[in-house]
């Protein structure tokens, strides 16, 4: 659409979309830093992830507020209305993703200076997957691309498989060495937080499909 045909709604929604992408970058960084703090046992970095979560909460409320103002002043309908409602759901899910990243950081602090139970292999894979899925689903939202959203939701199966593999491996270690249960549980918590991030991306993918097609359905049930 040429900018000369933009309605007031278009202009204001473009700003909201920009803030949404900015929030996406912040969440992406929180996920990346939580892994780094785990890999390096960096308590200061973990604390920074926890502190930065406040900023992400604030931007979520700012975007929600802008959406409410847009509904009240522009009375959007049809795909415009679906887009605004979708943004509200998306920021709630992204805010929860940041909470999961902060959850990993809190676990890092709880672990103290205990050495890692095992080298990290699948957890970094889960992090990379989560970051890719988040970036792609936000791009799919901007592009109004239901097919890509569906494909991203399908990738959540990969995330579930990685989590299952970690779960089984740690269970085996705990069975063999009961004195490792505490350290294994910490790693399991980290993996669980990442698995939940995958679920949150799936929720966002559902919203992208809803905006694009009007079809409201749950993916990966």
């Amino acid at each position: 659409m040429s900018h000369s045909l933009w309605t007031t709604f278009d202009r204001e929604f473009a700003q909201i979309q920009e803030s949404l992408l900015q929030m996406g970058l912040m969440v992406d960084q929180a996920i990346a830093l939580s892994l780094e703090s785990l890999q390096n046992r960096d308590h200061a970095l973990a604390k920074q992830v926890i502190d930065d979560d406040e900023e992400i909460n604030a931007i979520r409320f700012k975007i929600e507020d802008a959406c409410l103002a847009l509904i009240a002043t522009q009375q959007p309908a049809a795909s415009d209305l679906r887009s605004v409602v979708a943004v509200i759901t998306i920021v709630i899910n992204m805010e929860r993703m940041a909470d999961h990243a902060a959850g990993i950081a809190k676990t890092v602090i709880l672990m103290g200076d205990e050495p890692l139970l095992k080298p990290l292999i699948d957890i970094p894979r889960m992090v990379r997957l989560a970051q890719e899925m988040l970036g792609e689903v936000l791009q799919a939202f901007v592009d109004n691309d239901a097919d890509t959203a569906q494909a991203i939701a399908d990738r959540d199966d990969e995330m579930d498989h990685l989590y299952q593999a970690i779960f089984e491996e740690l269970l085996e270690i705990m069975a063999d060495k009961p004195d490792s249960i505490e350290r294994a549980t910490y790693l399991l918590w980290c993996a669980h937080n990442l698995e939940r991030i995958g679920d949150r991306v799936t929720n966002i993918a559902e919203r992208v499909i809803f905006v694009s097609t009007g079809d409201m359905r749950e993916l990966n049930v």
Binding site: T7, A78, R82, G214
Partner: peptide, 17 residues
């Protein structure tokens, strides 16, 4: 009509485009 119109012309009209 106001949330999920089926026709493109309806969508265009109610979204002011």
């Amino acid at each position: 009509i106001f949330t999920r119109p089926k026709e493109q012309r309806t969508e265009a009209y109610i979204t002011g485009r």
